[in-house]
Structure formats: C-alpha cells, structure tokens
Simulated assay, not measured.
Amino acid sequence: MAPFDVLASLAMDIYLPVVPAMPAIMGTSPPVIQLTLSLYMVMLGVGQVVFGPISIRIGRRPVLLAGAVLFAAASLGAASSSTAAPFVIFRLLQAVGASAALVATFATVRDVYADRPEGVVIYGLFSSMLAFVPAVGPVAGALITNNFGWRAIFIVLAALSVPAILNAAFRWHETRPAGQAVVRRSVLPIFASLQFWTYTLAFSAAMGTFFVFFSTAPRVLIDRAGYSELRFSIAFATVAAVMIVITRFAKAFVARWGIAGSVARGMALLLCGAVLLGLGQILGSPSFGSFILPMWVMAVGIVLTASVTANGALAGFDDIAGSAVAFYFCIQSLVVGTAGTLAVTVLNGDSAWPLIGYAAAMAMLVSAGLPLIRSRSHSRGR
C-alpha cells in the first residue's frame, strides 16, 4: 500500500521547483499554472466522496488498479504536453487517479485492520512517510530537472508507478467485506454540527496555509529572491523538517492542552507567523529570514492543529463515521483549493501577502468558533 500513499503526495511536491518556469514553457500565465496545484489538491479531497461509494459497490482492488493506471498514464501525458490546456487536464487526471488509489488504500486498511492494533501502526507509518515527502520531493524535483529537464519529473512518476501497479496486481487481494451493502443514513447531523465545522475549518486553515506557502514559495524565492531550484528546494525542506520534529512531540502537547487548547495555540501561531511575514514583506526584500523563518512558526501551528482536528470534527459520528471522514476531507480540500487559490490569484502570488491573508483570515475565523463550542458544551452540561 505504501507506494500509492507516497506517489499521491510526491506528484505535488516534486513538481514545485519548476512551477515558476512553467508559464513561459507552456506559453500561459501564472494563474493557469496555479490550477495544476489547486485542482490536484481539490480532487484529492473530492475523491473521498466519489470513490468511497464506488469502492463499496465494485471493490477496493479495481478502484486501486484503475486509479494507479490512470495516474501513470496521466503522468506520461503531462510529460508530453507542450501547451497549457492539455497539461492542466493531465494534471487533473493524475489527481483523479491518485485520489482513487488513496481511497482504496485507506479503505483496505479499515477492512483488514479495523479491530486490530496494527491499524494504528500502519496509519502512523503512512503519516511518517508523508511527512518526509515535502522534505525530499522538491529536492528530487530540482535534481531531476537540472539533469534531465522538467518532463523527466513526470516520466519518473510514471516509472515509479509501474512496479507498484505490478506488485498490487499480483499481491493485492480484494478486502471488501462479503455482502457489504450501502447503508443509507442521514448525513444532516454532520452539517448541523458547529463542532464539525469549526474543527474542519481549523484543518483547512492548517493545510491551506501550507498549500498557499508551496504555491507562492517558488515564485517568491526563485523569481524574486534569485534562489536556484536546488537552493529553493533545500530552503523548502527546512519547513518540512520543522514539521517532522514537532510531530514527534505532538502527542505530549495534545495530552497537556487537549483538542480545543491545541487548536487555539495552533491558530495563535498562524497569526504570529502572519505578523512576522507582514513585517518582512514591508521592511525588507524576500529572503530566508523574512519568508522561511516565519513559516517555521506557522509550521508548528500547522502540526498542532492537524494533529487533533479529525478527533474534534468526527466526535459523535461513530454511526456514520465513513461519511463524516469523507466530508471532512472533501470540505477541507474545497476550502483550501478555492480560498487558497483566490488568495494566490488576488493578493500577488509572488509575495508573502497571499500567505498572510489566508492564514490570518482563517485563524481568526476558527478562533471565533472555539468559544462558541465551549459555551454550547457548558449549556449541555447544565
């Protein structure tokens, strides 16, 4: 299962070093190239709602294999593109394939390990692997581009898919429980829950901050600060490294502060990072100190928040857990893809302002919702 988990994330991160060059290569504008990031992010979340029911009806194995083959084919299609329209379409198809493979992967974990302790271990391993992808992906992308050109990035993604597909074709057995049927229960309680919305928006604030960061970082550091693609990738990797280190201590922080306390501190750190970015934007030119170091502060807030929001958002929905999880990821991806892209497009994507605007606005929105959750909990307690 691991290769599909890694490839879905790698397809986003390995491509970052060449993003500033793609408008000239494809003869288009930066906002169009931004779609290749935004649509990928949105599709990964929307696929939770689309491919989950399909995997229940026809099985995990066909969804996984079809998705993986589509991912490989779309990667080759992207590599062969010379204009913007087919490139954007192939990136979207690549995301569709990655989303299908991810849904089948995690459904398989639930099928096999739902009542076994190994399930927690596997989810932990997946999370650890994904934490390293943003650290190594851009560096790999820069090295590949410098030696073989940008098309080689997508050829490598397709090539890495082949052994994963062959391995799965022979060794991945169907795990859908026999006779499983679609049980229809109302999902209205999910959308009526203030707690669900507050913590889902908190997750959107955290993941969206990172999304806007990697959407703007190539243009800020390569185009404006004059970083080489490799130097940019190393600077980017330091943010991922901070997140990896903080993840090691997240459990202790959560045990001490609880879900609401961790989210409140996470939002405070996002606001603090936004203030530091604003000062750097006003007082100096783009640099490691004015752009990357404030992002270290935000990275701590991202980890604190993302560590607990699922537990907060999904609490009380055990009877419709599958639907709640799907909507949790779907809404997050839509918020991030829409609001994040709007921020990058409207607030000058080659500056820190999109990151400042998105992080500050979302952090303040979530911070306003947390007291409402506490007041409702106290009211019920009486």
Rank of each mutant, 00 (worst) to 15 (best):
R151V: 05
A181V: 10
G141I: 00
I165Y: 03
M129Q: 02
A142V: 00
P134M: 03
N147F: 09
A181F: 01
R171L: 14
A140D: 02
L188Y: 01
I122R: 10
V121A: 14
V182E: 08
Q180A: 15
A152M: 13
F132I: 15
P177T: 12
V182K: 09
V182A: 12
H173P: 00
L125A: 08
R176K: 14
R184T: 13
P138V: 07
A142I: 00
R176W: 06
F126R: 11
I155H: 01
A178N: 05
N147L: 14
V139S: 00
G137D: 09
A158V: 04
I144E: 02
P189C: 04
T145W: 00
E118D: 06
P134K: 03
A168N: 09
P189Y: 06
R184G: 01
G119M: 14
Q180E: 15
G119T: 15
V136E: 00
I190F: 10
N146R: 09
G137I: 04
I153S: 11
F132S: 11
G149Y: 11
P177C: 11
A168L: 11
A142R: 00
N146T: 07
E174K: 12
V120M: 06
V121Y: 13
A140G: 08
F126E: 09
R171Q: 13
A131E: 13
V187G: 04
F154T: 03
A169E: 11
P134I: 06
S186Y: 06
P163G: 04
E174A: 12
V156Q: 03
W150C: 07
L157A: 03
A164S: 13
L188E: 09
P177N: 11
S161N: 03
H173W: 03
I144C: 03
A168E: 06
F132T: 12
A158M: 05
V121P: 05
G124V: 13
Y123D: 10
R185P: 07
T145Q: 06
G149D: 13
A159M: 13
A164F: 07
A142L: 01
I190W: 09
A135L: 14
Q180R: 15
V133Q: 10
V156M: 12
I153Y: 09
L143T: 01
L188G: 06
V139I: 15
A158C: 04
N167W: 15
V120D: 06
T175M: 10
A158G: 02
R151C: 03
L157F: 05
F132N: 05
W150P: 07
A142T: 00
N146A: 14
S128N: 08
I190R: 07
T145S: 12
T175N: 11
I155T: 10
E174P: 06
N147V: 12
V133R: 11
A158R: 08
P138W: 05
V121H: 14
G137Y: 08
P189V: 06
A152V: 04
L143N: 04
F132Q: 05
A140L: 15
F148Q: 03
P134E: 02
F148K: 01
L166P: 03
V133A: 12
F126Q: 10
V187Y: 03
R171T: 14
A131G: 14
S127W: 00
A135E: 03
M129R: 02
P134N: 02
V187A: 10
R185F: 07
T175C: 08
N167H: 12
N147Q: 15
M129F: 13
P163E: 02
G179R: 11
W172I: 15
E118P: 00
A159L: 14
N146E: 14
P163C: 05
A169D: 08
V162C: 01
F148A: 12
